[in-house]
Amino acid sequence: MTSQQTPRQYWMSIMAKSAASELLSLSDTEAAQQDFEVIRAPEIGLTQVRGRMGGTGSQFNLGDMTITRCVVLSAQGFYGYGYVAGRDKRHAERAAQLDAILQDEACFDRVMTHVITPLTKKLEQQQDNHTKEVAQTKVNFFTLVRGED
């Protein structure tokens, strides 16, 4: 979790960034234990992606990306929201279900331990491997003195 994130932002971020297959396999049993009412069935659409001129200046539209969103209501009365990049409806639905479960204090520790923490570790590990690979290509160019007087 970064210092600017609330716990809810943190778990939503981890679930969105993780591969759908990993999220699903880690949370199948957890999701099966509860009943959910589907408030907004998973639907695929677009979100416009914005950039900034020069990376830091005024905004401009870079293009769109696909997004899938879903809202569920847990039996305990918590609304769960799922927003994930791409077009995987199961990914968005599971993220919404777990968002509802994680708001329930009775389940929070268990789901964090069995789902969110392993996903975080996996993402960190991927990032770490990646960074190390890229670091192998760090370059130091030397400027040569030219021959002319």
């Binding site: 659409g45 677009l46 979100t47 416009q48 969103r69």
Partner: peptide, 15 residues
Amino acid sequence: RTTLNRFYVSNPIDT
């Protein structure tokens, strides 16, 4: 692209 609804506008990405 024209068959999809645009749900949201992102916060500007931070490169």
